[in-house]
Amino acid sequence: MQRVNMIMAESPGLITICLLGYLLSAECTVFLDHENANKILNRPKRYNSGKLEEFVQGNLERECMEEKCSFEEAREVFENTERTTEFWKQYVDGDQCESNPCLNGGSCKDDINSYECWCPFGFEGKNCELDVTCNIKNGRCEQFCKNSADNKVVCSCTEGYRLAENQKSCEPAVPFPCGRVSVSQTSKLTRAETVFPDVDYVNSTEAETILDNITQSTQSFNDFTRVVGGEDAKPGQFPWQVVLNGKVDAFCGGSIVNEKWIVTAAHCVETGVKITVVAGEHNIEETEHTEQKRNVIRIIPHHNYNAAINKYNHDIALLELDEPLVLNSYVTPICIADKEYTNIFLKFGSGYVSGWGRVFHKGRSALVLQYLRVPLVDRATCLRSTKFTIYNNMFCAGFHEGGRDSCQGDSGGPHVTEVEGTSFLTGIISWGEECAMKGKYGIYTKVSRYVNWIKEKTKLT
């Protein structure tokens, strides 16, 4: 034993070699072989497995989906700052455009905790909710729209109204504003409101030439003092309507412009014939205590009207009353817009006519005020429907199939267009061939041609 100890002390290297040989010859039971080890760690190889990531292109799944990435790591994937920024906006807080917040056709661009709407022409605001041009839906104005110097929408209202708090709607500024039905039992019968379409306001006024200088022999019209197929109006439903009495009662109609003036057809009036105007009328054979009678003290036909040349060209006249009318729910003026808007309103496509005229061709006159909704007829169809001249200051309205029309005794009465609950004068009943005849239409004086003249002559002093 002493000898062994001496050998170990003198030859430590020998001992180490012996131990190493023993270990190498022993069977290893701690580690699995290569094949079995792979069965336990069965993990798919990654895209760049075996390579240094710093030297390969980034992978979106590896960089940002398996674990949260930084902007720089995302930049490695896209290799483009702009594309990385677009991805980053949604990656950080989701897609803010998912709810489609942009209105009126706006395009949404996502941002971090926010979004941006790219608005089409005519709109602005956070969600493109603000109209900035009158060309689109009248700028959301209830009545009139004008573009300011910086191309912003400025709404306005006709006389007797003021802008509401929203700067879009119009509200009454006087007790009985024009064009409004205020009798409670008839307010439910107000005709369907007309909503502004998209309009090209630059070209809204037709490029028409008034044929002022045409000389033409007097034409022989049949029954051209021209509501057939209409309905009984309720008291106060058309408070701007008046009836004219002269040699015979209810020979023509008219509309209240203001307390002192009536507008009617020029062919209705004769110099030297006494005319009485009755406002607030409903049943011409009954006294309903809503009527107001006034005498006409002055007749002003349009300066281009000449019955000797043509009885229905420039067929418009103004009547001055001896005493002002007292405005109330049964006696209310009709609204008159400017030339541009009167023309736009007419193009809405349908209007209402009213009167006490004959209820059928050569038949009896109506006792109760009649009204009828009539569609506008395109000019080409209008011209083809008659052998008589249709001037540019006239328009056609009615039904091709016949059966409904204005008729004798309705002449001078109103053709009105309702705009968001307020009625505007767009025409004056003038003439036609018979009444409600198939293929024939009622012919009306186009008020847009005469609004400046009306307003100039009827100013209240």
Score class of each variant (00 low, 15 high):
Q57T: 06
G402Q: 13
P177E: 01
C28F: 02
R294A: 02
W431P: 07
W431L: 08
N127K: 05
I15P: 04
Y450A: 01
C119V: 00
Q408G: 13
F251V: 07
C145M: 02
P197W: 08
V451M: 03
P175E: 12
M394N: 14
G94M: 08
F395R: 02
Q237G: 08
G253Q: 08
V199E: 12
A265T: 04
V4A: 11
I297D: 03
L244N: 02
C145H: 01
R379N: 04
I284K: 08
V183A: 13
F348M: 15
I15E: 03
C128A: 01
S350Q: 11
K188D: 06
E142G: 07
P101Y: 02
V77F: 05
W453M: 01
C178V: 01
K137P: 04
A233P: 09
R3M: 12
E10L: 13
C141G: 00
E82F: 04
A317Q: 01
S448P: 02
H282Q: 08
T332K: 08
K260G: 03
F31W: 13
S156E: 10
F360A: 10
T85I: 06
L20E: 03
K362P: 08
K362W: 04
N222W: 08
Q2K: 08
S182Y: 09
E288R: 06
E35Q: 12
C268P: 01
M437G: 13
I40K: 15
G105L: 03
L19Y: 06
G122P: 07
C141N: 01
T290H: 12
A164P: 01
C18P: 03
K347S: 14
H289Y: 06
M65K: 15
F144I: 03
L425G: 00
T81H: 12
F221Y: 08
E270Q: 12
V183F: 11
T417C: 04
N213A: 08
E193I: 12
V269E: 02
Q143H: 11
I443K: 03
Y352I: 14
A164D: 06
P301D: 03
E285S: 10
T332V: 14
L327G: 02
V277E: 00
T426H: 02
L383A: 15
N343W: 03
S217L: 06
G403S: 14
N310Q: 08
V368N: 07
F388M: 10
T458D: 01
A317Y: 01
E35V: 11
L130M: 14
L163G: 01
Q219E: 09
N113W: 04
F78L: 14
D338R: 04
R162I: 10
N5C: 11
V4R: 13
S182K: 06
K293C: 05
D95F: 05
L103Q: 14
K455D: 03
F176N: 08
N36C: 04
N304Q: 13
G236F: 05
Y161F: 09
H415G: 01
W431C: 14
P239V: 01
M65D: 05
A9Y: 12
T386G: 09
F176M: 05
D223F: 10
T271I: 09
C108A: 00
L103N: 08
K188G: 11
E165G: 10
Y115R: 02
T287V: 10
Q370K: 10
G413V: 07
E10S: 14
A37G: 15
